[in-house]
């Protein structure tokens, strides 16, 4: 019986062609996968697959270039905004995005992030804030919450000796070079759709050369938070969102 249902008119979801057929290596329930899909769908819906160049970071999403079916470069840890600058200065009419974790963007790459934003480079920065270093096994990130445990803050982040969690989105929003800065999540279908809308807006602003757009996605890390995906989403809602509040941080009127 079931095969009779597989007809074009019954189609409710089709994988976007901007994602390749490779099996994602991300852990079950990880927000990286959904964020990939939202960004790929945004690129697809704008019809800019052949005009887009992406930059993968060092972090869990280092292999993002296998999944996005667009031309891609793999940057050194934290340097994606500089690589994107180099691309955009020689190809100003292409759509360029970087895809970076919190360690990549807000620790080792802070200078590259702030200066690209301050120059108002016309590209999209996608920033995955999971409050931890996922790839290297759960060390403290600049975004790790106060008292949150990680392998390098086993008794919880002590802000007196380890510093406070960094709100990099608010920081770059204060710079004249940024045009659109927003914080979203992908843990529910409604939130994922909002994230996709934000990506689309940011890419449209890029076409108009409005300046840097940074979309932060507050995300989870079930493996390193040592929770099930469902628990991790709940923990995120209860602990991450109060500190990293969702919504526009800087948006054009």
């Amino acid at each position: 019986m079931a095969e009779n249902l597989i007809k074009p008119e019954n189609l409710v979801y089709d994988k976007t062609k901007v994602l390749t057929d490779r099996v994602l290596h991300y852990c079950p329930g990880c927000g990286h996968s959904t964020t990939h899909r939202m960004l790929a769908e945004a690129i697809d819906e704008l019809g800019i697959q052949g005009e887009t160049i992406g930059i993968a970071p060092v972090g869990c999403s280092v292999l993002a270039y296998y999944y996005f079916d667009v031309d891609m470069t793999e940057a050194a840890h934290g340097r994606a905004p500089a690589v994107a600058t180099g691309i955009k200065r020689v190809l100003p009419d292409k759509y360029v995005f970087t895809y970076q974790g919190d360690g990549d963007l807000a620790a080792i790459g802070t200078a590259e992030t702030i200066h690209a934003c301050n120059r108002g480079e016309n590209f999209l920065i996608v920033f995955i804030n999971n409050g931890i270093y996922g790839m290297t096994g759960g060390q403290m990130a600049p975004t790790t919450l106060e008292n949150m445990k990680s392998t390098t803050s086993p008794r919880g982040r002590d802000v007196k000796t380890m510093g406070s969690p960094l709100k990099i989105s608010e920081l770059v929003a204060s710079l004249p070079g940024t045009y659109y800065v927003a914080r979203h999540s992908v843990h529910t279908p409604a939130n994922a759709r909002k994230t996709k809308r934000a990506f689309k807006k940011a890419l449209e602003y890029q076409k108009e050369k409005k300046g840097t757009c940074l979309i932060e996605v507050v995300s989870n890390c079930p493996s390193n938070w040592k929770m099930t995906p469902i628990e991790s989403n709940k923990w995120m809602e209860e602990n991450m969102f109060p500190f990293y509040s969702l919504g526009d941080i800087k948006a054009p009127k």
Binding site: R79, T85, R89, V90, H115
Partner: peptide, 18 residues
């Protein structure tokens, strides 16, 4: 004028990749 030599060489990396 880049923010550092690190940024400058990575800008070169991006442009060279094109």
């Amino acid at each position: 004028q880049a923010e550092s030599e690190i940024a400058a060489i990575n800008m070169v990396y991006g442009a060279a990749g094109c």
